[in-house]
Design a protein around this nucleic acid. Structure first.
Length: 166
DNA sequence: AGCCATGCACCG
DNA sequence: CGGTGCATGGCT
C-alpha cells in the first residue's frame, strides 16, 4: 500500500500532440496507471465518456481549461476505446509556441487552480539520435519530505511525494 | 499501449 | 464556410 501521491506529472510532447503532423487532434493520452488516475479527479466509469473540466493556470497567471475525459466505449460496448485523454490543449500550446520534445508539466493544487507549464528544451544538442531524453531531475525539498521521480509506462514521468517518511 | 489519423458536428 | 477538436478508428 503506497501513500505516495503525485505532485506533478510530465510528458514530452509528440509531433502529433503539438499538431505539426497535420492531424487535427487536440489531446494527449493519459496512461491507465492507477497512480496517474489518482492524480486526476475521479470520473464515473459507469457513464458514457465521462469528463471533468479542470482549470489550470500557467506561470503567468493565465487560465486554461482542459478536459479530462475517459473514453470508455470499449468497456460499455459502444466503441473500441478504453483510454483517458486530456483535451483542449491547443490554445495553451500555441500561446507558448510548443514544439515536439517540449515537456508538458501538470501539477495539482489542493484548493487552487492546477498548474500547467511548458518546459522547453534548452539543451545545446537537441537533434542527436541518442535518447538521453527525459531523465527528469531528482529534486529534494527537505521541508516537504522526499520527492521521488517515478517513471511511468510510456513517456510520462511523475514527481511523487511520500508522506511520513523518516 | 501509445502515437497517428480523420469524419463530422459545431462555432466563429 | 473555413477552422477546430471531439470521439473514434487504425497502425505499429
Amino acid at each position: 500500500m503506497m501513500t505516495d501521491y503525485f505532485e506533478s506529472v510530465r510528458k514530452p510532447l509528440t509531433p502529433n500532440d503539438v499538431g505539426v503532423t497535420g492531424s487535427h487532434q487536440a489531446g494527449v493520452v493519459i496512461p491507465r496507471d492507477p497512480r496517474m488516475l489518482a492524480f486526476f479527479p475521479p470520473l464515473d466509469a459507469g457513464r458514457r465518456n465521462p469528463r471533468s473540466t479542470i482549470p489550470f493556470s500557467d506561470d503567468d497567471g493565465r487560465e486554461w481549461r482542459l478536459n479530462y475525459i475517459y473514453y470508455n466505449g470499449k468497456i460499455l460496448g459502444f466503441s473500441t476505446r478504453n483510454e483517458y485523454r486530456l483535451t483542449g490543449l491547443t490554445p495553451f500550446l500555441r500561446n507558448h509556441n510548443a514544439s515536439p520534445g517540449d515537456l508538458l508539466e501538470l501539477s495539482r493544487h489542493p484548493e487552487e487552480r492546477w498548474g500547467i507549464r511548458l518546459i522547453t528544451k534548452d539543451r545545446p544538442a537537441i537533434g542527436n539520435g541518442s535518447d538521453s531524453e527525459t531523465q527528469a531531475d531528482k529534486q529534494s525539498f527537505p521541508a516537504f519530505g522526499v520527492l521521488e521521480t517515478v517513471t511511468l509506462s510510456g513517456t510520462w514521468s511523475a514527481v511523487a511525494r511520500r508522506k511520513n517518511v523518516r
